[in-house]
Nucleic acid binder design. Structure first.
Lengths: 160, 160
DNA sequence: GACAGAACGTCTGTCGCGCAGAACATCTGC
DNA sequence: GCAGATGTTCTGCGCGACAGACGTTCTGTC
């Protein structure tokens, strides 16, 4: 309970797990749990240009996305529409019901987030979220699909 | 690539996944990958008082810890010793070889961490890690085993 | 226009891991 | 001495990541 407190991996894991738990509890019976929420968010606000683009954004395997969308579609929250420009791809769009559901969820999720962040003051919370946002943006830009090879090279070069 | 950027869950997930990938790449063939490293760290520096305490700290299931330790023990990096005070429990201690291996790993891990944090300036990096540390400490204190019930109550009360 | 190659989505199989439950050894309180 | 609690291990289940194969569709070349 001492050395680990300083470990970046450990601290990040603790917070991440806490958020996932809180989020899953908050979304209740939404198909797909916390990932279902993210899919719904992306479908409503980001107009994902394809199913696989969505996978990449969310870090979800494409084979999982298939039945994740199946479940959400069965619940009438999103719909798969064939893309007019490329009939191989399917556009994922939220239904009216999905959008309505998302509004409710946003409220609940805000509380889940606040629950996890309750250890920080108001100002620190914003600072933290801001830094995290910048970090995620950077990570996502340089490495949308983290190439282990590059990392290994990088590390090997540094550590040798 | 726009709305999600603001989602706390998404940003945290992106950074977490990136770190896990980088860490796994950095530890190479260490049994247990990034979790093996954390076990080794705890065993070396934290003197975990029992196997299950270790599970709780690391957020690992106890059934997984069993064969995680099996693998590390087979590699002569840690050892299970019967606790003198309670023969039900096993103390997890690092071997000399384990401690030596940990020193090498720390170097490599520092580079992996730097890789993930490379989007922030030196100062911001420290700020971020400091806030994260406080957050993890708080989360861990109030909710070592996150009780979904409490969270649900909390959220239900807040969102209604 | 025909064809090779690539991309998208789906399906199958495998593996790691979290979770629930049971079994066993051991400890604690009565 | 005995009932109940606790630590560890094992088994079975389900979810999800990953790799590979397949059908459909698009693109570039001849």
């Amino acid at each position: 309970m001492t050395a680990l407190e300083d470990d970046f991996g450990w601290t990040l894991g603790v917070v991440f797990r806490a958020l996932v738990k809180a989020t899953n509890a908050a979304v209740g019976d939404l198909p797909g749990g916390h990932r279902g929420y993210q899919v719904l968010t992306a479908a409503t606000r980001d107009q994902p240009e394809s199913q696989s683009a969505l996978c990449q954004q969310l870090g979800v395997d494409r084979t999982v996305m298939t039945y994740l969308l199946d479940d959400l579609e069965r619940a009438s929250l999103v719909a798969r529409k064939p893309a007019p420009t490329d009939r191989r791809t399917r556009l994922v769009v939220a239904t009216d019901e999905g959008r309505k559901r998302l509004e409710e969820l946003d409220l609940r999720l805000a509380h889940a987030e606040a629950h996890v962040l309750s250890g920080l003051s108001e100002g620190d919370r914003e600072t933290f979220k801001g830094l995290l946002r910048r970090l995620a943006g950077h990570v996502n830009d340089q490495d949308p699909v983290p190439s282990a090879c590059a990392v290994v090279q990088d590390i090997a070069a540094g550590a040798s």
